[in-house]
Design a protein around this nucleic acid. Structure first.
Length: 403
RNA sequence: GCAGGGGUGGUCGAGUGGUUAAUGGCACCGGGCUGUAAACCCGGCGGGUUCACACCCUACGUAGGUUCGAAUCCUACCCCCUGCA
């Protein structure tokens, strides 16, 4: 028996790229992994059966503290047995802390040492979010991986602003850890495993985990490498089950983002999973795996799918374009997802142009399939020592353009 | 037949003498979206020449007229709607 709430071990390395096995209390799966985003307890437009089906096979999804706290409320979800039971998802779940909303709703908030005062985007009422509140809400949600409460500065934050922000995040990391541990001891975790809950696909390794929630710390520092290093040291000093790089893809140049990841990821603890928050496009995933990242999440496949954009092995395809009006081919001729096996571009365009919700459903499905399949191929390439070649060919493919 | 109302750009619909190639909506064409305030947002949308500024044509049922100037006023005609016969 282990005392860990989460385990990660390297299966193979290829340059900085790592293939690993991540064990959570709700299932073990290989990394690098992409986590579909389900902010409000729903991966928008995609049923859980589909997420579990072979062409997607998502092993872990995201939920959001801030959004679920506002609606339906932590008490409701606790009363319903935690987020997993509430939404009907048995596999792993990671919850974001609400830290990102401090950034994205920045014009309706006030940040202080204690926490953040918000005006709820839903009805404008005054709310207060802090490391303690975030941990309490995430305990009520009972997610498998909890994120520390951080502050995410804009990508172009100055050195001085990024330093102030990073230091606040570091203090909040300590408070997050402290309150998180108290809540685990108090048994506040609504998703606690080991008391008779049958975990689908659980194996001996997973059952050897202690059944508690795990918690990840978040490295900030904007684009300033010295601050990133300092933030990393301080976060590791607190001690977490895994570490995330936050504050990227928030307005900075793409080359700068890659540069930050390239400098930070290899410095992150070798034996812990590394999670790049909110990233990214297919090329971002591959490029950041190459720099040592293990976990990703992004709204792009579902949001862009809803908005008519498909990701394919030859780049992006805008289903709205008139050129597809009578095109009988699937979105991506190299894709074997349920949507590509059955439907033509012409039909998908028709659905989109007529406002049928099925367009959003099918495009979201395909996009998730493409992202998840890309990660499968990434893992396989790393394990067979052919990641460099895969990376090169994948990027050439994306650049070749949809015909 | 008489009385009243009306015919505007792909479409619906504003505009009742002058910054009107003509407000809006829809449709259409294109672009964007990275820890989801997003089934959303932004641009274009009569034709032609131009990289562009710009210029030229054609347009508010049809044909005339009044006026420096007309989608807007007048006359005739065509068509549509409503009521009465």
């Amino acid at each position: 028996m282990t005392e860990e709430a989460l385990g990660w071990q390297t299966l193979a390395r290829d340059g900085e790229a790592r293939a690993g096995l991540l064990r959570t209390r709700r299932g073990a799966f290989e990394t690098p992994v992409f986590m579909p985003v389900g902010t409000l307890g729903s991966v928008k437009g995609v049923r859980f059966e589909e997420l579990e089906a072979e062409d997607l096979d998502a092993r872990i999804i995201l939920g959001n503290t801030y959004h679920l706290w506002l609606r339906p409320g932590a008490d409701v979800i606790r009363a319903c047995g935690g987020l997993h039971r509430f939404i009907g998802w048995r596999r792993a779940m990671l919850t974001d802390s609400g830290g990102f909303q401090v950034f994205s709703l920045s014009h309706m908030r006030r940040v202080s040492e204690e926490g953040v005062e918000f005006r709820a985007h839903t009805d404008g009422r005054q709310c207060f979010l802090s490391p303690e509140v975030s941990m309490e809400v995430q305990a009520a949600l009972g997610s498998d991986i909890v994120m520390a409460f951080d502050e995410c500065p804009p990508g172009r934050a100055t050195h001085e602003a990024a330093r102030v922000s990073l230091e606040l995040t570091a203090r909040w990391a300590r408070r997050s850890r402290t309150r998180f541990d108290e809540l685990q001891r108090e048994g506040a975790d609504a998703g606690r495993q080991g008391s008779g809950d049958k975990v689908e696909g659980a194996d001996a390794e997973v059952e050897s985990l202690n059944g508690r929630q795990a918690i990840f710390g978040i490295v900030q520092g904007a684009t300033h490498l010295d601050l990133r290093r300092e933030s990393l040291e301080r976060t590791v000093g607190v001690g977490f089950d895994g570490y995330a790089i936050g504050g990227l893809s928030v307005g900075e140049e793409k080359a700068v983002m890659y540069d930050v990841v390239e400098h930070v990821a290899p410095l992150m603890p070798e034996g812990r999973p590394r999670y790049l928050m909110g990233v990214g496009t297919p090329e971002d995933l591959v490029e950041c795996v190459a720099r040592g990242v293990d976990m990703f999440d992004c709204v792009i496949p579902t949001r862009n799918g809803r908005n008519g954009q498909a990701f394919t092995s030859r780049g992006r395809l805008n289903i709205k374009n008139a050129r597809w009006t009578t095109d009988a081919r699937p979105l991506d001729e190299a894709c074997t997802c349920a949507v590509c096996r059955r439907h033509s571009r012409a039909y998908l365009r028709h659905l989109y142009m007529t406002g049928e919700m099925l367009a959003a459903v099918l495009l979201s499905h395909h996009n998730l399939a493409f992202f998840l399949d890309t990660m499968r191929r990434v893992r396989q390439a790393i394990r067979s020592g052919e990641f460099a070649r895969f990376r090169r060919e994948f990027l050439v493919g994306l650049d070749s353009g949809v015909e």
